[in-house]
Design a protein around this nucleic acid. Structure first.
Lengths: 194, 194
DNA sequence: TTCTCAACTTACTTACAGGTAAGTATAAGG
DNA sequence: CCTTATACTTACCTGTAAGTAAGTTGAGAA
């Protein structure tokens, strides 16, 4: 069998690009920002990712992996709705604390029309999955009388996701001050009192 | 007295840059994007705005003027809280319909660390003004029994602004579908039934 | 009439972005 | 030992971004 050379260059490129992407957005970093601190040349990146779109695609995949890993505990269907919601808050707070207030959707949003169809589709279906998950959490919370809210669970889920999206953007500009305010208000709007 | 030459070049630059900024963000347009369709040279822009930061500053001011103009009707203190809130929704929807789902704060957010202190400050105080205004609307609505919500008015205001911020970002990526959902949910969470 | 100044244009520069083609070192396979 | 593939580097290219310095034009002031 062909033994792969002990190169982690490809992975390191993804790691660094991923960080940069979530800190500065799609057009906020260049190949140089990746290659120079790695001690390789720009062309080395082109070797692994012939063009930037290929790199972006890899970053979307990476995002899915990371998200799946770090959200699997609280996203597991069957857990208490409240626990799942708090998991989302903790995850969001953690991302902001790690200097990543911008999420992938936010990073792609501003340059959205430059993206090619495949990426848009992946991004879109990721969004839909999130809505689906949180909708289920809302339904569950209502059934189990953990949450008390009016309106349909899907609208509620979308509004909470929007709030978190907006909160992260605010965090970028105004620091983390408003974040807890927003989480608190979401709890209150869900009739969570304790 | 020195009569000013009948030049509106400066204003046209601001107009065009403003449009571009709100469509593509800070780093999403170049001098060329402005000068070429105007039929002037890049250097003409440098004449009026020696560097890009000067232009951005002018755009922030323009944003304040535009916002003050287009929000003055519904933002007037003293009006019914519900009317003021609906004004905000209509304004947001209108912006999205005009192909400007990104607001100024959103446009600046992604490149935030590139900005100089003066701009950050202006942006910050704009945000604070918005929070202040909406907080007052929330207080008013509660006093006049137009709104029925728990939690303090300021948190409520911040959460609504975050929601709208997030909604605009979603609108960019997913179209306007979710917008009405979100507005509806805000109404419901404020105890508005009719 | 001449002077001056605002509002440009012309003609650059520097820097950097993304990308490519051709060459090279290394290691494993046959 | 020779071949082949991988994982690069070297040395380019094109395009574009922001910015600058010096020259031009036209209108009003002195």
């Amino acid at each position: 069998m062909t033994v792969k050379a002990a190169t982690n260059t490809r992975e390191e490129i993804i790691d660094r690009a991923f960080q940069l992407m979530l800190q500065r957005g799609l057009n906020g970093f260049s190949y140089r920002d990746i290659s120079e601190p790695m001690g390789v040349k720009n062309a080395a990146i082109h070797y692994h990712f012939p063009n930037k779109m290929d790199l972006i695609k890899a970053l979307i995949d990476e995002n899915h992996r990371v998200l799946r890993r770090s959200t699997s505990e609280f996203m597991a269907y069957g857990g208490a709705a409240r626990v799942q919601l708090e998991g989302l808050f903790a995850f969001t707070l953690n991302q902001c604390n790690c200097g990543r207030p911008i999420c992938m959707v936010g990073a792609l949003a501003i340059d959205y029309d430059e993206l090619d169809e495949e990426i848009k589709k992946a991004n879109n279906s990721f969004m839909k999955d999130s809505v689906k998950w949180l909708t289920r959490v809302m339904e569950l919370g209502r059934e189990q009388k953990e949450f008390d809210f009016n309106g349909d669970p899907m609208s509620k889920a979308v509004s909470i996701l929007a709030m978190i999206q907006g909160a992260r953007q605010m965090a970028r500009v105004h620091g983390l001050d408003y974040l807890e305010n927003i989480f608190a208000q979401i709890r209150i709007d869900l009739g969570i009192t304790e």
